[in-house]
Each structure stands twice: as C-alpha cells, then as structure tokens.
Amino acid sequence: MNSIAPHATLTGSGVDGVDIPIVGIGTWPLTGSECTASVTQALALGYRHVDTAENYGNEDAVGLAVRESGLAREDVFVTTKFNKDSHGDAATVRQSAERALKRMGLDYLDLFLVHWPNPAQDLYVQTCESLVGLVETGLVRAWGVSNFKPVHLQRVLDAGMVPPVNQVQVDPEHAQHDVEQFNAASGVATAAYSPLARGSEVLNRAELVDPAARVGRTPAQVALRWHLQQGRIVVPRSANEERQRQNLDLFDFALTEEEMARIDALDTGEGPRLDSDEFGH
C-alpha cells in the first residue's frame, strides 16, 4: 500500500494555515526526461510534495510530471525557488513567479522561496516584502526563504515579517542547531534539504545502523525519522523506486529518546557545505 505523508501547517506573514506534506521528493540534479520519470514515479508511490528550483534547470520536467500525474492540482504541493536576479520590488518578484509558472505549465505555486539571501546584494528584505504581496495575488499560496542564517532572518523579522519556512541543509552531522532554534523561536518552520548527508558515510555509523536493525528499517529511514521526530519537513532526493518508497515509509515506527540522543551526538558543529554569506545565485 502506498504511503502519503502527514501535513504540517505553515503560518507567517501573509500566510494563514497552508498545509505542506512533511516529506517531499527532491529533484536536484535531475533534468529532462530523467527528472520527469522520477517525479512521476514518486507521485505514483504517494508523494504529494515536489521540491524544485529555477537554478536546478528542471522546473519544466517537474511541471510535466505534475500535469500528467492524473492527480488533481490541489493534491500536489509544488515548491520552487528563485535566483538573485529576481530579488527586489513587487514587479520583479512577480515576473519571476510568472516565468516559473510558464516553465512548469501551472497556474499557481504552493511555495515560492528565496533560494539564497545574497547579502552583498542587500535586497532580500525588500524581496520578502514583495513575496508577502505576491501571496495576495493568488499566484503563490505561501512564501519562504532558503539558506538564511539567523542574522538574515533577524533583518526580515525587524522589518515586521515572519517567513513561514526556512529551507536549510540539515543532516545528522550538520544539525545547524543555531539556525533551527532561531527558526523555532521566531515561528518559522524548518525544512531540511540533503537530509541524508549527501556524500557522507554517516549512514554506516552504528548510531543509525543499530536502531535500523531494531525496527527492521534502513539507516536512511532512521535518519529521516530522526528529522521528523524533531519536527522538520524533509525533501530527500532519489530516483530509485525502492529508495523512494522507503523514504516515504516512515510513519509506523519511532526512535527512542536514547536513539535520538545518539544521533544528535553525531553533529560535528560544522556549518553547511556552502556559506550563505559568501555563496549565492
């Protein structure tokens, strides 16, 4: 039987009660027919949240899969993100949304994120203001940010806005406690990308292997369950059918407090792969 993830509720400036499936399918770096096939497969398995971005170069492929899935549009939650050349006033941000919708062949976006703050450009606060206004047009249901540090979020908060979500890199070795705690204290939901520590050997660690053996699951499922029990939204990426199925099959087992603490202890204290004060597009 196919699983469908439970929902969390996004709230924030301009957004009041938008439900988001807490497990989504990531799509980077897939493009073209490979991306469409992966998303089509994921939707057939029960995924109802798809994560893409302008910079991934696959919004067209994602949109095709959504349109041809046989599912009602309102049953699929679509997240995309936009680049720094679209930061700025209301007209600029609206044009970015319209271009994304045209690429995807959709009438609205469920979640539209500032992909990187690009602080040297110093337009992200104005961009958030533009996003709040964009929700009122109906082109997007919710807005948010990605890769924002507490210092970036604080400036947005000081301008009187609360982003509904901040999507950041979180995995057992890069827990980013300072970011997550600031998000939570500010009423901002945390979404984790690369939740399985891409390129890491962490899934071979006893802290994940041991509970996996106890509950009869994979270490990757244990890592994703760790995220969910800490209240995060997750967007793992896999094109493999069995792994897609496993990554969604997370809701009939639980980790103990001791197991959670052991996984917590894997945190190296290091920041994410890319420093959002220096990197951006």
Rank of each mutant, 00 (worst) to 15 (best):
N2D: 12
E74Y: 07
L131N: 03
I4S: 13
S130A: 15
P21A: 06
T80D: 13
L203I: 03
T11D: 11
R103W: 07
V179Y: 00
G105V: 11
A8L: 12
A192F: 06
K84C: 10
D171T: 14
L131M: 11
G88V: 09
G187L: 05
N247K: 10
G231P: 03
E98Q: 13
L43Y: 01
N166L: 01
G271N: 13
A42L: 08
S96Y: 06
E207W: 06
R48L: 01
T92M: 06
T218F: 00
G216D: 00
N183T: 10
T31P: 09
D89P: 05
L113P: 03
G46A: 10
N247F: 12
F112Q: 01
C35K: 09
T27I: 04
N183H: 14
P195G: 04
T218E: 02
D51W: 11
L255Y: 00
R94P: 05
A97E: 03
P150V: 09
L224P: 02
R94Q: 12
R48I: 02
L101I: 14
P236Q: 00
L71E: 15
N166M: 03
Q121R: 11
G187Y: 03
R217F: 05
A44D: 15
Y47G: 12
T190E: 07
I20R: 11
S146D: 02
G12C: 04
N204C: 10
A254V: 14
L101F: 12
S96F: 03
R73H: 07
Y108G: 08
E207L: 03
T9E: 13
F82I: 05
N204F: 12
G63Q: 00
V165K: 11
G231I: 05
D178P: 10
G14M: 00
Q221E: 01
V145M: 04
D275W: 06
T11W: 08
S96I: 07
R225M: 02
R99G: 09
D107S: 14
V222H: 00
P29A: 13
R273H: 14
D75G: 06
D171H: 15
P236W: 00
L64M: 12
G187W: 06
D107Q: 11
D252S: 13
M1P: 10
T40L: 12
H87T: 01
N204K: 15
P163R: 01
H87W: 06
K149Q: 15
D249L: 04
G138L: 07
H87M: 14
S186L: 05
A97D: 06
